[in-house]
Simulated assay, not measured.
Amino acid sequence: MGATSLGLDAFLLVICLVPFLHNAAAIRFVIDREECFSHNVDYQGDTVHVSFVVIKADTPWHYTQDGVDLVVKNPTGDQIYDSRDKTSDKFEFIVQKRGVHRFCFTNKSPYHETVDFDVHVGHFSYFEQHAKDEHFGPLFEQIAKLDEALYNIQFEQHWLEAQTDRQAILNENMSRRAVHKALFESAGLVAASVVQVYLMRRLFERKLGSSRV
């Protein structure tokens, strides 16, 4: 009875701790020229998942596919990843040195751009724990794997949502430009018709005037 109660308590404790076993951050920001973010990773060997999507550029009259640059540096300042001129990217890396990692974005286009940025750190905390009961080990391992799988699904969903937002904004901008183009073309046709009518009336008036003389 005591062992069963101990096992149940341990299981409930792990379930309560599961939401706190991961370190994740997602942010949507507007970049002018350069923006840098810092993210602390507590354990060497953790897997860091990173994604970003350029949602839109503040240029309603110009269609642009300009991307941004992303440089990732470890706590000692060494560059560990470099992404150039991309509107979206998704990657992961293994932490070689624990500590604060820096993620610096650079925008080389003349327009402000809205970027969706997501960082997720995968860590199996049960590696640093010592279970008194050998039967708890496999249980902890399965819970940790399930937790990691759930966070990976959430990370992937965030990436897809950002891509969907970007495509919706692009479609809206293209539709708006098509409407504006149609309005301009219609206005041009109306103006050309008015000019033609005016010229024809002047021509007839001149002919009538010359015939009367």
Rank of each mutant, 00 (worst) to 15 (best):
D133P: 07
K97R: 06
R177K: 05
F20G: 03
V195I: 15
L170C: 01
Q157T: 10
S175F: 13
F204P: 02
W61F: 14
S109P: 08
V195Y: 12
Q196S: 14
Y43R: 04
R102P: 00
H130C: 00
V18L: 05
D66I: 10
E128D: 06
N74V: 07
G188I: 01
I80W: 08
I27S: 11
Y198R: 03
P110N: 07
Q154C: 04
C16R: 06
E134K: 01
F52K: 02
G99V: 13
D32W: 11
H62A: 14
R202Y: 12
F11A: 02
I153P: 02
F20S: 03
H120N: 03
F117K: 02
Q157A: 07
S186K: 12
N152T: 07
R212E: 14
K90Y: 10
G67E: 00
L21R: 06
A178G: 04
R177G: 01
T47Y: 07
S186V: 05
A3C: 04
D58C: 10
T106I: 15
H135D: 04
Q65R: 08
S88E: 15
A168E: 06
G209I: 02
W159G: 02
A168V: 06
T87Y: 05
L8W: 09
Q167R: 12
T164W: 08
N171R: 13
